[in-house]
Design a protein around this nucleic acid. Sequence first.
DNA 1: ATATTATCGATATGCGAATATCGATACAAC
DNA 2: GTTGTATCGATATTCGCATATCGATAATAT
Lengths: 226, 226
Amino acid sequence: MSKDREVSVPLPTIRRLPMYFSLLQKAAQESQTSVSSSQLAGALALEPIQVRKDLEAIGVTGQPRVGFPVAELVEAIERFLGWDNATDAFILGAGHLGTALAGYHGFESKGLNVVALFDNDPRKIGQTIHGKEVLPIDKLGNLASRLHVHIAILTVPAEVAASVAQLAIDAGIQAIWNFTPTKLIVPEHVILERVDLAASLAVLSSKLAARLRPVEPTAQTPEVQA
Amino acid sequence: MSKDREVSVPLPTIRRLPMYFSLLQKAAQESQTSVSSSQLAGALALEPIQVRKDLEAIGVTGQPRVGFPVAELVEAIERFLGWDNATDAFILGAGHLGTALAGYHGFESKGLNVVALFDNDPRKIGQTIHGKEVLPIDKLGNLASRLHVHIAILTVPAEVAASVAQLAIDAGIQAIWNFTPTKLIVPEHVILERVDLAASLAVLSSKLAARLRPVEPTAQTPEVQA
DNA sequence: ATATTATCGATATGCGAATATCGATACAAC
DNA sequence: GTTGTATCGATATTCGCATATCGATAATAT
């Protein structure tokens, strides 16, 4: 009842925080000490009001006619997201996407430390991808608990997504970052976040499709039941 | 004022369509002729009411005590998303992510046909990645218009995202699928859809962070201004 | 035939988030 | 000093979407 403090920050606000974050880091590098909500809004194509509400949500207050303190904002966002101290993660699935993510610099500054990759392909096991070892998937249970790894980045093929996710959960993984097209159903205590390419593509496609057929010939509900 | 027909389908609904789509394809393969909203809801951890409203939005009606016609649903979703006939796309940036996407089977069934990749690295140009040629980025303008390619999949490094996007826009690209961490600002007529890893990670991180510090020591607003 | 019940579709309600409004504040110009 | 103005923060409003309610319908069982 009282720990709703964090949870009460709107989800859309949380999603916008990284955008503010990178802008603010840039501002800090340029020794800027304060930014106004309108500056941020302008750079991100948002409304100043929204920016102010977002920044208020993470507990930073600005000053009229001055703006918000840059350094304080950066700290507050880092702290709120837990990006101030790194959490270890495993990548499950050393395919194209897993490999790409293993090589992605930028996680370091976002509190994510990829420790190793896992796969079941004997040809991949033992290899080193971007400085990280590829381990057999059956070692997952043992290592996750021993190394206190909390996050699993799931990049396996769709067919095995559910079963590998279950392995991770059994291994005590606390959060799954799901890059597969599979909608996972997990127990309450497991944090689940999905990067849904298909959903994103669907939005793009539907807009494009709508544009390509601007006006429908009056009756657009033919008896399709044939 | 009257073309709001398509646009009036709620965005969250559009995002859920691919989930229904893949389930329905599976059902069709198993020669199932109809599905109930509760079946779909059960498989996707949704509420039946929501499923019904979603399916209604794309113009398919069900029958009491029977459910919705599978074949008709598949067709309607394909048609709505424009997945029934493919659109050509370029991948801009032949790095890890671009390579991964070039090798992703599954776009074919989603109306997306990757024609080629573009890069500015002389070592990559001329190579073939997953059967697709890597071309120099300065050929983009010429080829996009000549081949009537409408979609650009943007996987270049963040620093050049804005300028490459501008190239694409100048080349007459109609839609940009943005995988970079950069928030692009594009003219009205360009469709823009973003896969925002940072936003997704932020949600995951914040939940994890909130869990790791369940109760804050009473006064949780110290003078951070030091 | 009749009763039962799963399921749909229409209408109503509720909730979270975006947006608007407006007074308060503090810097800058004169 | 005094005035002007950009900006903040609090409150109110609006909007979109999810959820609940309930009558209507058609397959199944008796």
